[in-house]
C-alpha cells in the first residue's frame, strides 16, 4: 500500500494503490454509464476497466457526452 501520483483529466491527483480504473470511478462516484476512458492515450473498453491497475505517472482522461450543437 502506497500513494502514487497520476494525472486525471489533466490534473495531478494522488491515489492509494492498488486501484483499478473501475475502483477509481466508484471512489469518485461516477456511474460507468456512457463515459469514455482514455488511458495513456488509448481508449479502453469498459470490460477492461476492472483489470487495469493504475500506476505512477499514468494519464487518464474521463470523458462524457454533453449537450452540443
Amino acid at each position: 500500500m502506497s500513494n502514487v501520483i497520476i494525472k486525471i483529466n489533466g490534473k495531478t491527483t494522488e491515489i492509494k494503490e492498488p486501484l483499478t480504473i473501475r475502483g477509481l470511478l466508484e471512489e469518485k462516484g461516477i456511474k460507468p454509464g456512457e463515459i469514455v476512458i482514455q488511458y495513456n492515450g488509448d481508449i479502453i473498453d469498459k470490460n477492461r476497466w476492472p483489470e487495469i491497475l493504475l500506476k505512477e505517472n499514468d494519464e487518464l482522461e474521463i470523458l462524457r457526452f454533453v449537450g452540443g450543437g
Binding site: G29, R64, F65, V66
Partner: peptide
Amino acid sequence: VTVALRRVDFDDPQENMLQ
C-alpha cells in the same frame, strides 16, 4: 442529433446526455 464530448467534472458531475 449533435452532442459534444467533455471531460467529466468531478465537482459537478452532470448527467449523461445520451440517456
